[in-house]
Amino acid sequence: MSLPGKFITLEGVDGAGKSTHVGFVADWLRRQGREVIVTREPGGTALGETLRELLLHREMAADTELLLMFAARQQHLAELILPALARGAWVVSDRFTDASYAYQCGGRGIAAERIAALEDWVQRGFAPDLTLLFDVPPDVAEQRRSSARAADRFEQEAGSFFDRVRDAYLARARSEPQRIRVLDARHTIDAVQAEIARLLLDLA
């Protein structure tokens, strides 16, 4: 699927610091004269934000969680992402489908084939142009999460859950090294953002 705009996603375990860098990515692109839309998953639309509240705060079966994630993603694509890309805007999203492979497959243990089937149905071959994966050891991420805010349902998971999530993210990066670029989130914000700028310059 070829569209005039570009789609950039930011990924990582909770506490990796990716949300800190969303604004930097958007501001950098705007300085290059791009129209930029910043969004997030789950969320990004009125329906998606309603589903986000359920996903973050209501207990549910793992399969229900996965289906709601993709329901929110379908609406996100139809209502916001694809129309913005079609008019030439650049869309920057805090999480996308790589998070489903990391959290629902790696973390929850749902078979990757089931997630791939939903991905094929909902996305029809559509994928980000660039994914920035902020990697950090789980113990560092846990320290950051505990000092940030009240924990949601995912952030309350045990350390072993986040070990599996991180491993799944890194496996995705090894399988798609041109799209998924791993950044060491232990480095200073300035150092990480210098690397982000270099990657954005290659894309722009």
Score class of each variant (00 low, 15 high):
Arg52Gln: 08
Gln74Ser: 15
Gly44Gln: 01
Gln75Thr: 11
Leu54Met: 12
Glu79Gly: 08
Glu53Asp: 15
Ala89Ser: 06
Thr50Ala: 14
Ile81Tyr: 00
Ala78Gln: 15
Glu49Met: 14
Ala72Trp: 03
Arg87Leu: 11
Leu68Tyr: 08
Leu67Pro: 04
Glu65Asn: 05
Ala46Val: 15
Gly48His: 00
Glu41Gly: 03
His76Met: 07
Pro42Arg: 01
Ala61Asn: 14
Thr50Trp: 10
Thr50Glu: 13
Glu49Leu: 12
Pro42Cys: 02
Leu80His: 07
Gly44Glu: 02
Arg87Met: 06
Ala84Trp: 03
Ala71Glu: 13
Glu53Gln: 15
Leu51Gly: 03
Glu49Trp: 05
Gln75Cys: 12
Phe70Val: 04
Phe70Leu: 10
His57Leu: 09
Arg73Ser: 05
Arg52Asn: 09
Glu53His: 14
Leu80Pro: 01
Arg73His: 10
Leu85Lys: 05
Leu47Asn: 01
Pro42Ser: 02
Gln75Val: 09
Asp63Tyr: 10
His57Asn: 14
Leu68Gly: 07
Gly88Ser: 11
Ala46Tyr: 13
Leu67Lys: 03
Ala46Thr: 15
Leu47Pro: 00
Glu65Tyr: 02
Thr50Met: 11
Ala62Val: 12
Gln75Ile: 10
Ala72Gln: 07
Ala84Lys: 07
Leu66Val: 14
Leu82Ser: 10
Pro83Glu: 10
Ala89Asn: 02
Glu41His: 09
Glu79Leu: 11
Leu54Asp: 05
Arg87Ala: 04
Leu56Cys: 09
Leu56Trp: 11
Pro83Asn: 06
Ala86Val: 03
Ala71Val: 13
Arg58Cys: 11
Pro83Tyr: 03
Pro83Gln: 06
Pro83Lys: 03
Ala62Gln: 12
Glu41Ile: 03
Gln74Ala: 15
Leu82Tyr: 05
Ala86Lys: 12
Leu66Trp: 01
Arg73Thr: 06
Glu59Asn: 02
Asp63Lys: 13
Gly43Gln: 07
Gly88Met: 07
Met60Thr: 10
Leu47Phe: 12
Met60Trp: 07
Glu65Met: 06
Phe70Met: 08
Pro42Tyr: 01
Leu47Gly: 04
Thr50Leu: 11
Arg87His: 10
Arg52Ile: 07
Leu85Ala: 03
Glu53Ala: 15
Leu77Lys: 04
Gly43Ile: 00
Ala84Cys: 08
Ala84Thr: 12
Leu85Trp: 00
Ala72Asn: 05
Gln74Tyr: 14
Met69Phe: 13
Glu65Asp: 10
Arg58Leu: 05
Pro42Val: 00
Gly43His: 00
Arg73Ala: 03
Thr50Ile: 09
Pro42Thr: 06
Glu53Ser: 15
Ile81Cys: 10
Phe70Trp: 13
Leu77Gln: 09
Arg52Val: 04
Ala78Ser: 15
Ala61Val: 09
Leu68Thr: 08
Pro42Phe: 00
Arg73Val: 03
Gln74Leu: 15
Thr64Ser: 15
Leu55Val: 13
Ile81Val: 15
Met60Asp: 04
Ala86Ser: 14
Met60Cys: 06
Pro83Leu: 08
Met60Asn: 02
Gly44Ser: 06
Ala84Glu: 09
Ile81Met: 11
Pro83Ser: 09
Glu65Phe: 01
Thr45Ser: 13
Arg52Ser: 06
Glu49Arg: 11
Ala84Asn: 08
Asp63Ile: 12
Leu54Asn: 01
Ala89Gln: 05
Glu59Pro: 05
Ala71Met: 13
Leu67Asn: 05
Leu68Ala: 09
Pro83Gly: 12
Leu54Thr: 10
